[in-house]
């Protein structure tokens, strides 16, 4: 598969206030069918998309945060979170959902999908991509 490209979806908006977070998630799920090397980055207010215990009953919008747990089934296993963005918002990894994927080559062992990166590491990762889609 020589034509596999590195696709990164960069998420920078809080969920529900705008449509960006949901649109990104839908594009990721659709795009997952194309067997590319996919990763997701959560930067700036995008980190709020991954918070656990989201409860949308009061705002009457579907709680699509549950769908992030399905990303592993879609073979999306690389989720990068910017440390500085967490710090700036008084958040820690513990405030985020625990997302996992199952490694087929390792007897389906459950592995963590989320990796917290420094801004410099995130910048390096951007550089490595063939395609960057920004939401």
């Amino acid at each position: 598969m020589a034509d596999v490209k590195k696709f990164m979806y960069v998420n920078r908006k809080a969920p529900y206030g705008t449509i960006y977070a949901l649109e990104s998630l839908e594009v990721v799920l659709i795009g997952a069918a194309f067997d590319q090397d996919v990763s997701l980055a959560f930067v700036d207010d995008g980190v709020y998309q991954l918070t656990k215990d989201q409860d949308t009953t009061g705002v009457g919008i579907k709680n699509f945060s549950k769908t992030y747990s399905a990303l592993g089934d879609y073979e999306v296993s690389k989720i990068y979170v910017d440390q500085e963005s967490l710090d700036e918002r008084g958040l820690t990894l513990d405030d985020l959902q625990h997302l996992v994927w199952e490694d087929e080559d390792d007897d389906w062992a459950e592995k963590d999908s989320i990796r917290v990166l420094s801004r410099a590491e995130m910048a390096d990762l951007f550089e490595e991509q063939d395609v960057v889609l920004s939401f």
Partner: peptide
């Protein structure tokens, strides 16, 4: 109920 999506066929098959 768990994931709030209808899975793609290949995801459904595997699951």
């Amino acid at each position: 109920d768990e994931y709030q999506i209808a899975p793609a066929v290949r995801v459904l098959t595997k699951a």
